[in-house]
C-alpha cells in the first residue's frame, strides 16, 4: 500500500516515514499491534501523506466525532440548572455552562432558551466523557462565539463539504458573497447557520451548497452560476 492508493479496513501500510521515531497518525489509521512499525487501516478511503511524517485516510465519514478545539454549531435541547445540553451531532449531548458566556455572572445569566442555536468551541472532548463547550476564549472574550440570531436558518451539510468550505483557499463562499449578501456560521460538525435578508436568497444558497457537495473545488463556481 502506498500513498494515494485506495485502501480498505484490514490493509497494512508497510513503509512508514518517521522523524526521530515519531509518526503522526490521523483518522482512519492505527498502529499495527503485530508489527509496531506498520500501520493498520480502519476506514475505506484514500491514503494521504504530508511531509515529513503525517498519515491519514480521506474517506467519507458521516458521523461527527468531537475533537478538542473544534468550533461547532449546536442546538440547545435542555436546561439543567446552570448548564445547557447542546446537540452537536455527536453520540452524546455536549454540556455548556451558563457562566461560560462573556460577562456572565451568577446573578446575571445570558438569555438562552431551548431551541436556540449556539456557536461554541469544544473545551474538552474525550471519548470517555461528555463533550464540554464554551462561548468565550482564553481572554474571557466572546469574539464570534455565542447565541446566534433566531432569524437565521440551520442546515445540515456533509462532513466533507464542511471541511472543504472552511479551507481558506475555497472560492465558493467568497464568490457567493459577491452576488448575495449573507451571513454564515460554519461548524465542523456538519451544521451550518445561514442568514440572508430574503427567503429567496436562502433557498439559492442552500441549493448551491447541495450542488457543491458532489463537485470538486475547481468546478464549484461554474455549477453555482446556474442557480442565479
Amino acid at each position: 500500500m502506498s500513498v494515494n492508493d485506495f485502501v480498505l479496513p484490514g490493509d497494512v501500510v508497510q513503509t512508514v516515514k518517521s522523524v526521530r521515531g515519531v509518526t503522526v497518525v490521523g483518522p482512519g489509521l492505527r498502529q499495527n499491534e503485530e508489527k509496531p512499525n506498520t500501520l493498520c487501516v480502519t476506514q475505506a478511503g484514500k491514503l494521504c501523506f504530508k511531509e515529513p511524517n503525517t498519515y491519514w485516510i480521506e474517506g467519507k465519514r458521516n458521523r461527527y466525532i468531537p475533537k478538542k478545539g473544534d468550533l461547532v454549531v449546536g442546538i440547545v435541547v435542555k436546561k439543567v440548572g446552570d448548564t445547557l445540553k447542546i446537540d452537536i451531532g455527536s453520540a452524546e449531548f455536549a454540556s455548556l455552562s451558563m457562566l461560560a458566556f462573556e460577562g456572565a455572572t451568577k446573578k446575571q445569566k445570558p438569555d438562552v432558551q431551548v431551541g436556540d442555536i449556539i456557536y461554541a468551541k469544544l473545551l474538552n472532548a474525550h471519548r470517555e466523557m461528555e463533550p464540554e463547550l464554551v462561548c468565550i476564549d482564553s481572554y474571557y472574550k466572546a469574539g464570534k462565539l455565542g447565541v446566534l440570531s433566531n432569524d437565521g436558518y440551520l442546515i445540515n451539510i456533509s462532513l466533507n463539504l464542511a471541511q472543504r468550505l472552511l479551507s481558506i483557499e475555497n472560492p465558493l463562499l467568497r464568490t457567493l458573497g459577491k452576488k448575495i449578501p449573507y451571513e454564515i456560521v460554519l461548524g465542523v460538525n456538519r451544521k451550518m447557520w445561514l442568514f440572508a435578508k430574503k427567503a429567496k436568497d436562502i433557498i439559492t444558497l442552500v441549493r448551491c451548497f447541495e450542488a457543491a457537495e458532489n463537485q470538486i473545488d475547481k468546478n464549484i463556481i461554474e455549477v453555482c452560476k446556474q442557480f442565479k
Partner: peptide, 11 residues
C-alpha cells in the same frame, strides 16, 4: 459499515 466510515479492524 464501510459506507458509514466507522472504524473497523477488518472487513
Amino acid at each position: 459499515c464501510l459506507d458509514s466510515g466507522i472504524d473497523m479492524k477488518f472487513m
